[in-house]
């Protein structure tokens, strides 16, 4: 199968993730959409690795997965503590930074 199709899939997943981040209010869902975007990138990297015949892309994909795991830990912890404090997981409610 032509590897370019994997790239189309990655782009599709990325777009779905991005739209999710922009339009959903629930912090958990936004978070999952971010994961979706990361994984779309991973897919693209792996595909490129296959297309170019070297391992750079796969190395970076592993790297991304490690970062994503760390991010999940920190991010979920923040969301949980925000939820505890304000009884809401909506990103729109956390707008204290504006003047």
């Amino acid at each position: 199968m032509n590897p370019v199709n994997y790239l189309y899939l990655a782009a599709l997943l990325f777009t779905i993730g991005a739209v999710g981040v922009l339009i959903r209010r629930n912090a958990i869902v936004v978070f999952m959409c971010v994961e979706l975007m990361l994984n779309a990138c991973n897919l693209a990297f792996v595909t490129f690795s296959r297309m170019h015949g070297n391992l750079d892309g796969q190395v970076i994909a592993f790297f991304t997965m490690v970062v994503a795991a760390a991010e999940v830990v920190v991010g979920l912890a923040i969301i949980v503590s925000v939820f505890r404090a304000r009884h809401s997981a909506s990103v729109d409610d956390a707008s204290l930074m504006k003047l």
Binding site: V21, L22, R25, V91, S95, K98, L99
Partner: peptide, 17 residues
């Protein structure tokens, strides 16, 4: 210009994208 800074994470995200 200040009105652009509305504090909604999503609108910042839109401008980033």
């Amino acid at each position: 210009l200040r009105k652009l800074q509305n504090g909604y994470a999503r609108s910042y995200a839109v401008s980033m994208f």
